[in-house]
Design a protein around this nucleic acid. Sequence first.
DNA 1: TAACAAGCATACTAACGAGTATAAAACGAT
DNA 2: ATCGTTTTATACTCGTTAGTATGCTTGTTA
Lengths: 247, 247
Amino acid sequence: MARKAHTDISRLSRGALRAVDMNIKQKTERQLAQKKVSRSPFDRELVRESKRDAVLSVAASAFNRGGYANTSMDNVAEALQITKLTLYRYFKNKQQILFELHMHAMNHGEEALWLAHATGSTGLEKFLICCRRYMQGIFGEFGTCPVLVDVGSLKNPEKDRVIERRAKISKATVKIIQEGIADGTIGACDARLATLYTLSALNWIPLWYRDDGRKTADEVADEFLELFERTLTGQASHQRPLADSKA
Amino acid sequence: MARKAHTDISRLSRGALRAVDMNIKQKTERQLAQKKVSRSPFDRELVRESKRDAVLSVAASAFNRGGYANTSMDNVAEALQITKLTLYRYFKNKQQILFELHMHAMNHGEEALWLAHATGSTGLEKFLICCRRYMQGIFGEFGTCPVLVDVGSLKNPEKDRVIERRAKISKATVKIIQEGIADGTIGACDARLATLYTLSALNWIPLWYRDDGRKTADEVADEFLELFERTLTGQASHQRPLADSKA
DNA sequence: TAACAAGCATACTAACGAGTATAAAACGAT
DNA sequence: ATCGTTTTATACTCGTTAGTATGCTTGTTA
């Protein structure tokens, strides 16, 4: 029944939905398995990684809410109930935290693109798979990832690396939309602007989403997927029959 | 002919389009007229206001591109080819610049809502009028306005004032979408998420738009209006006939 | 129990940028 | 040329925060 609800709210086939859900599930399990192999809770390295992940998660939330520059290392430490000295045991500096957060977001973006091409058949389907996988990534691990605007807070050469990866993801997304326009599953539009339009909506999610019970992450992801689909499958108004011309 | 091009890319009636365009034109002319009345270029106050506007415009661009915190008063002064001491002759401090920029954006938002209710007949039409007027505002005067994320850089009590105005604008936008859902011009969806989705796309524009000849502001505004319309008029997928079921 | 790791308290340096003080230069109006 | 306004040059204070030094406390492991 729950599966049926997914199918009802999106054009993605059951197979495509399953592929997306399985991808992140497998990835998560693979990561857990890698940690479990020859590792116990007494494994110093494993504990260290868990603590690093906790810092990244809390820092990501704080950076998204108030901005990187408006968040001090003391703020992050307080949220974790440790001192800022402890933070420097796990991260070289504040910039490294921001950089790794961006890298995680880029990893999700690239993984989403790969999965879209691996399992999607039409342009629209690829786009929706990509968005769903990306949303699952930014909702899942680390709670949230930083948004574009904080690229400005990164310093070179790391900043250039993130900008380069982001540009590639954006360009690949434009291509997917162009492919959809060509195969007829996406309505005619400026692919670049449509990409900016939809990526804006995607990247804005970490800024406002709160896990406050109002909507679960999955519900938000499903609704946004629905809105993405409407945006892309809608016809240009001069092609679409007027509502009041029906009779 | 140019007028016809507008009509072709959006469901807005000619009357509605004209109302939006006339609104900002009248506002601009009214402001110019106010400046001209009993004012000459030798009018000290007029010159002072022009200089203030120039600071706001350049500061807005710099804040959008690199972020408020990553932009120093020296940076803003350099861009204007003056010294930072001169900036302090026109603004009390850096926060005042940011605050006034946010206020301008809120003014455009509220004006857009007023116009939407004054000239729109359906929910969809009101929404599109609102978006068009808002985009004209943030494109026109001052080039750009700061985005939501820099609210985090504002300090209280100004920050609370901006947040309050922004919340009202957001709530009013949700109501317009709900009205459209009720009158059938907007497809069934979560109005709050649809508002976040579309406002994200709107507020992201100053971050990426460059007047580099690729697309004019009006072209971007028109394309986005088209995308907004598709988003809102699209049917839920379980209601829309499948493309391959046509025969 | 000893050794080591992890975290902490306290204090500190250094850098940066907002903002100001003072005096001089430049500019514009008469 | 003079006077007033505007801008600038130079130097400075102050606050904030990143990041570090040192030594102590606590917890974990062998």
